[in-house]
């Protein structure tokens, strides 16, 4: 696919060129009824326009539809771009806003500012209060997406969108799915486990197999089950 790009770019250049050339004769046809204007020396483009006096690209293409900006669902979705960048987008429904207003004061929206609070939740079952650390990103007023720079690869992050009140307290509006940033270097875990195809025969531990490491592995696997912490598998219905 990538390889067709040059062709693609080539075609568009030609297309644009042809477009330019095409619109000339259209002018010319109109002007032809007023010969006095046409009396000018023909330009280079006009000379060529004669042989290109055909429509460019099928004109009957359907118009490109516009997509809705919102889908009427409360969601804050966190995605991984690379080991050091996350991307979040969100949608907050009017119902949710009302709910927040009635829970706090109606003046909340004027007296507070929007922030994204980014939590490092690596290896923990996040309950809102037990993050290893967190930092805030201040947002502009009318945005519904943000790229977030994070400090470390191979860490699990979760994000809240919320409001910071003048007294510094934070109100969560929506919480995202957790994501884990990919590694950007070799793993420092050297102990090996080997497996027969399909686990047909047995699983065998080789190399360093101190009980401590196995315990740690089990713990890690238990808290960060494969498929939950990864960016691809946030299931809003779970």
């Amino acid at each position: 696919m990538t390889l067709f790009l040059p062709v693609l770019i080539g075609s568009v250049i030609v297309l644009l060129l042809a477009l330019v050339l095409f619109y000339r004769p259209a002018f010319k046809t109109v002007k032809a009824r007023k010969p006095e204007i046409l009396a000018d020396t023909p330009t280079f483009a006009e000379e060529y326009s004669v042989e290109l006096a055909e429509p460019v690209r099928p004109k009957i293409l359907d118009p490109v539809p516009e997509l809705p900006r919102s889908y009427g669902m409360d969601r804050l979705v966190l995605m991984v771009r690379d080991p050091y960048w996350l991307y979040a987008y969100w949608e907050i429904t009017a119902t949710k806003m009302d709910e927040i207003s009635s829970q706090f004061s109606p003046g909340l929206w004027e007296s507070s500012r929007t922030v994204l609070r980014v939590y490092d939740v690596t290896g923990i079952d996040f309950n809102g209060n037990n993050a290893l650390c967190s930092f805030d990103c201040s947002l502009g007023s009318n945005t519904d997406e943000w790229y977030i720079s994070v400090p470390s690869a191979n860490r699990t992050y979760c994000v809240d969108i919320g409001r910071v009140l003048p007294d510094g307290s934070f109100i969560t509006i929506l919480r995202s799915n957790p994501v884990t940033t990919p590694r950007d270097s070799l793993s420092d875990r050297f102990d090996e486990e080997w497996m027969w195809i399909e686990g047909l025969y047995f699983r065998q531990q080789m190399g360093v197999s101190s009980p401590l490491i196995i315990e740690e592995l089990a713990e890690r696997m238990g808290r960060l089950p494969i498929g939950i912490s990864s960016p691809g598998f946030y299931n809003p219905h779970e």
């Binding site: 884990t180 990919p182 793993s187 486990e193 080997w194 497996m195 027969w196 195809i197 494969i226 960016p231």
Partner: peptide
Amino acid sequence: HGYNQVATPCAS
């Protein structure tokens, strides 16, 4: 070669 090391690949 049906006997191979077990590891979790890196997202990439």
